[in-house]
């Protein structure tokens, strides 16, 4: 119960154009004030519950993303913010873009838009809260994500 009342989020910028990032940060500032839901932006993954990912994946940051995901303790929820994080968006088809975040880690909720409005992101966070709640009751554990092999070597 208490978990959904004060979820801490970690914001991971993968391959984003900054548009979604500044909207995620705008959510935390006085006008939209995500703190009224108990949401706190935290720098370290080891204390986070919700992972907010913006931007698509490329060959260099895929390891960073996987590393941060594995460090977040269970139960955890992944929120993909923006068109790029969901599918690759306008950059789908660029040579260095693999695709949406769900190509590498399991995603629980998607927020569409380029860029999504802060209200939409808040909606996404609230939707993620109920998933977080049911995950903690069902004691579902996130699986450790291992790469399929051909995306990137470990020393990248």
């Amino acid at each position: 119960m208490s978990l959904a009342k004060s979820p801490w989020i970690i914001h991971v910028n993968c391959n984003s154009c900054n548009g979604c990032d500044i909207e995620v940060v705008a959510c935390l500032t006085p006008l939209y004030d995500a703190e009224r839901f108990g949401v706190l932006n935290i720098g370290t993954p080891k204390q986070a519950d919700i992972m907010v990912v913006t931007g698509s994946i490329n060959y260099k940051n895929v390891n960073v993303l996987k590393n941060i995901y594995n460090q977040i303790p269970d139960p955890k929820v992944v929120l993909a913010v923006g068109a790029c994080a969901s599918t690759g968006g306008i950059f789908h088809g660029c040579y260095n873009v693999i695709g949406g975040v769900d190509q590498v880690i399991p995603v629980d909720a998607y927020v569409p838009g380029c860029c999504p409005r802060p209200e939409a992101i808040l909606d996404g966070v609230v939707a993620a809260l109920s998933i977080l709640e049911s995950k903690s009751q069902g004691k579902i554990k996130g699986k450790e994500v291992k790469l399929k092999g051909n995306e990137v070597p470990s020393n990248a």
Binding site: N13, C14, N15, S16, G55, S56, N58, K60, N61, V64, F91, G93, C94, Y95, N96, V97
Partner: peptide, 14 residues
Amino acid sequence: LGYVHRGLEKFINT
């Protein structure tokens, strides 16, 4: 660098 490289200068050819 390279964590945000997308390759737009090639992409615009299409």
